[in-house]
Design a protein around this nucleic acid. Sequence first.
DNA 1: GTAGGGTTAG
Length: 576
Amino acid sequence: MCLHRWLQRGVWKQVGQMDLAMAQFEQMAERDIVTWNSMISGFNQRGYDLRALDIFSKMLRDSLLSPDRFTLASVLSACANLEKLCIGKQIHSHIVSTGFDISGIVLNALISMYSRCGGVETARRLIEQRGTKDLKIEGFTALLDGYIKLGDMNQAKNIFVSLKDRDVVAWTAMIVGYEQHGSYGEAINLFRSMVGGGQRPNSYTLAAMLSVASSLASLSHGKQIHGSAVKSGEIYSVSVSNALITMYAKAGNITSASRAFDLIRCERDTVSWTSMIIALAQHGHAEEALELFETMLMEGLRPDHITYVGVFSACTHAGLVNQGRQYFDMMKDVDKIIPTLSHYACMVDLFGRAGLLQEAQEFIEKMPIEPDVVTWGSLLSACRVHKNIDLGKVAAERLLLLEPENSGAYSALANLYSACGKWEEAAKIRKSMKDGRVKKEQGFSWIEVKHKVHVFGVEDGTHPEKNEIYMTMKKIWDEIKKMGYVPDTASVLHDLEEEVKEQILRHHSEKLAIAFGLISTPDKTTLRIMKNLRVCNDCHTAIKFISKLVGREIIVRDTTRFHHFKDGFCSCRDYW
DNA sequence: GTAGGGTTAG
């Protein structure tokens, strides 16, 4: 194919050959607006936003052309990605001074730029200034998207409902809006009516729906979307494949996640590698995660700031402190990435898990930015594992200064006291939680059996099969006690009989979900339990014994990671 | 002919 046409058709974008395109572009004698736009949007879409802006300024300087709506949309998007509000504002005033029509993609890009660069108020003004009269579909989609970005879902819904001809972009934008606001049920309903109404979802829609399935950790929803991606051919999109990795990983199926990664048929991008590295790290396969990272480097891909989060968390779980330190330096020195709060929290985690509490504390003190809740939380959690009350108190105090109603900090501190045998102190903390306004988040667990989700709370007496569930748990309880399990009744902070305390532990939501799973699935089936909070110490110990007793693999998803219980051991190596 | 909506962490 003629290179000129190849460039203009954007083939290089699909194969990712920016340098070839650039070389070709520079040789061209005549460049029209589409050629310029092609280059600018190409760099913008591939994440080279500075180069996109560079070419834009070259265009203004070297050519007689004026930017059109495509140019402006791409350049504004580059500003948004770079969070360069100042340049975005300049472009906005240029648009106003030339009398350019602010609608459609230009309006959309402006709203997007302002809301992503900390100019939410300007974004809202732009939206409010526009009536909905005389707007074409792109204009409506821009408004819809604007309201979603401002977090005003009611207005977004109004706009969406008023749309006569909804195209696939409008549907997707609305679905994504619900997904980002945690309204997963609404997102699923909307997807159903979209498909039911004959609108065909594309790769964007399917990636968004896979993200919904990930958030719900629902294997059955995820598999359905996977099926439609294969049928429609959208599986060839990298983003769909990437979303698939995360969906399987979050649904607890690391093997299928790996398969999704291996089967990516187009070029794997940074997100693909990052997703897989994080998936492996979350499932306790730290060494494999780091091997994958090294392979990624050998293939010539550079990690981004999120890849490093995954790498650090892998190091933490394998206890590789020095390697973690080296990667931290590599991130700063080689990849020129300025560490963010997440990176610092990861490093605190790394030192903390290894028992280097003092080093963790010093690291926090030396941070060039103000430590946040997550940083102090990491230190607190390490203090709990290594039973350091003094430092734990400091961490909890600092955390509560930032967020006085953080119930997790109170619980962690109480658990720390219990772990050190200081029951009275622990009871005091719990009492101060009750007295204060601090509400403990209600813990619950759920399990999917035959496409139905069964939710259990503590002492849950609502399930139709509750008698059988309780009886099963009691039988298991007696068996694992014979195997050496000692119930952690000391952590139950009530003045009660020993047997009653045991019953309270026995009826923790994750244990009930497991008992239900055992009686409602065939022998040897892997159980996948989801929990909205951290697994408690007693459950963690008990489930190790249960996995051995029943000869099944039990996978429990915490707030952040997966515990694979098998043969009496857990993949987290007792650190979580 | 070029865009808009998506995928990675805590």
